[in-house]
Design a protein around this nucleic acid. Structure first.
Lengths: 195, 195
DNA sequence: AAACTTTTCGACCGTAAAAGACAAAAAATA
DNA sequence: TATTTTTTGTCTTTTACGGTCGAAAAGTTT
């Protein structure tokens, strides 16, 4: 089965529908027949394009990660001050997470022993760290930041931000969350910025 | 099985958990084991308090309807002008519906032939009409409104409002929806208000 | 603390819905 | 018309679910 243009297009249509369904129900409760219905096809037709439910989910995650990365990189590209880049990055991250919170439940909260979910988590994490590392790297290059080990710094800060976010998402409304983020950001920056 | 205080309390805890789960997944996709987990109990324990999934759902609907009625009556109690009461009622209704839209999906849209759902619809509708009738009745008593048959007027207006709402909910954002409601209200009122 | 009641829970059952396989129908292309 | 691509209905197998039951655990009463 080779991938013609038409086929790729049809595949993408299914991915979009699948994303909506996964977003609404989460991985487990979303049935392939739901996805098929949302795409206006029979279940079997979906299986013509994807080998399994897992593969569909995989494709959705990849697609969303790509969009997400694009959004961030576009936003960051327009800013030349690494401090503001950092802020922008975290804000978009927060926003995106909220938007897809139900959907990303699988990536964030799922029961640990699931190998498939673990794999996805790795992919998602890798994206995350790469984006963040780039910002840091850029900051170092332009002399704004002073970081000895970019990799481990990225891991540390991203992990910390996640912990904060998960609390913010559930307990506070948007405006307050942004204020908290703002303050945390200040703390991170003034421990990092060259004096 | 008699209802002690402790039992009633435990029942209510389960109802609250069930409400969250139903709200998230809708009736069909919500599993009793999900509800049990949310309540921190085993599935069998839930069945100790409720005979069936249907009964749980029933209890949730009743509980929510009660809360809803209370909210409206409290809000309306503070206003002595029937015109404003009417407006308040419709605004709260709109708001509540939006809040629980996913959850009430069962009440509003479910496939017709389901007897159980039909029954719930009746209950829900009855609550609705009673509240609305009270406002109308009060308006007539205080000489603000001039309605010949309260019952049928209530049915007519509530039904019309529902139609409008269902469109508003999906197609417009809050501010615009409120403007539309406002105008429709004006039309209703000036066909009703004594000159 | 024995006897009894209330509550919790794990194991189990039958059914219904799910994932996935597959061959044949339908549509598109040559 | 012959050939390839795409769609779909049907079938099998597996899993998930609603609901039951009896026994364990916790709580009360005597």
């Amino acid at each position: 089965m080779k991938l013609t243009d038409k086929k790729r297009e049809e595949r993408n249509r299914i991915i979009e529908s699948a994303r909506d369904v996964f977003k609404k129900y989460g991985f487990k409760k979303a049935a392939v027949s739901d996805i098929a219905a949302a795409a206006g096809k029979a279940k079997s037709s979906v299986y013509y394009y994807f080998k399994s439910k897992d593969k569909i989910y995989n494709a959705v995650i990849f697609s969303e990660a790509k969009k997400y990365r694009y959004r961030v990189s576009e936003a960051v590209k327009k800013i030349n001050n690494p401090e503001l880049q950092l802020k922008e990055y975290i804000l978009i991250r927060l926003q995106t997470d909220k938007m897809y919170s139900n959907f990303y439940e699988a990536v964030h909260n799922f029961s640990e022993q699931d190998k498939f979910i673990k794999r996805l988590k790795q992919i998602y994490d890798k994206e995350e760290f790469e984006i963040f590392s780039n910002i840091l790297e850029n900051g170092v290059k332009t002399g704004f930041f002073d970081v000895s080990d970019i990799k481990y710094t990225a891991v540390g800060i991203v992990t910390a931000m996640r912990g904060i976010e998960s609390v913010l998402l559930h307990k506070y409304e948007d405006s307050k969350a942004e204020a908290v983020i703002d303050n945390v950001l200040k703390i991170i920056l003034y421990g990092i910025v060259k004096r």
